[in-house]
Amino acid sequence: MAEMLKLGLVLMLVALVAAVALGLVNSRTAPIIAEQKEMEKQEAMRQVAGNLSPGDSLRFDSLTVSGLPNPYYSVDSFLRVVKVSVPPDTSGVGYVFIAYGKGYSSTVQTMVAADMQGRIAGTTILYQQETPGLGANVTDPSKLIGSFTGRGSVGILLAKDGGEIDAITGSTITSRAVTNSVREGLEAMEEAGLFAPGALTGDEDLPQQPPCDDVGSSAGNDVTGTADTDSTAAEGGNE
């Protein structure tokens, strides 16, 4: 009995010391990690949104777009739409959102900026764990994501799927995940009526409706702007 007690005490002591040590280190590193993540996001937002209105100071208001089309498993795209606006003009200059697409070995997160007409102004990959040398090339702005710029949702489709975007060699799965998730983000915003009417979208030359558009039909999409979560006047990028 006494031995059991001793063993238990030793184990408890070891665990206690471990927990205290980790707690201490965590209290030092956690803020650094959080700050770093924040910086990365901010940097990415400025970079993509800077293409919308160079030099302006930007405000990011959060928006909720619900009733997303959620077709098959190849894409799980989720948007957090943030309205970008120049202070006196509350109508905004465009939107920024993050698209999530299931790639080969990870869920690729792409940050996308679109203008008020629903055209892509800039894209950057926030997170990916794809195969180095293959899918990991999505981060290269001269390859896949660079060719999105200036296109509306109709044009964002891989050549292999009948569109015009060239996939990264040997990485169709990753390319398709990114392309489809970005397109779906735009489509959801179109359906929510966020883009200027009659722009690139909703024209008669748009025969392909998403296969399950009953999910996100007219009743489904409601848009809520929450003014209180607005934030950070960020400097627009110079480029």
Partner: peptide, 11 residues
Amino acid sequence: MSGSALLSILI
């Protein structure tokens, strides 16, 4: 600075 709100939305 409501950066944390932004962060919570983004991540």
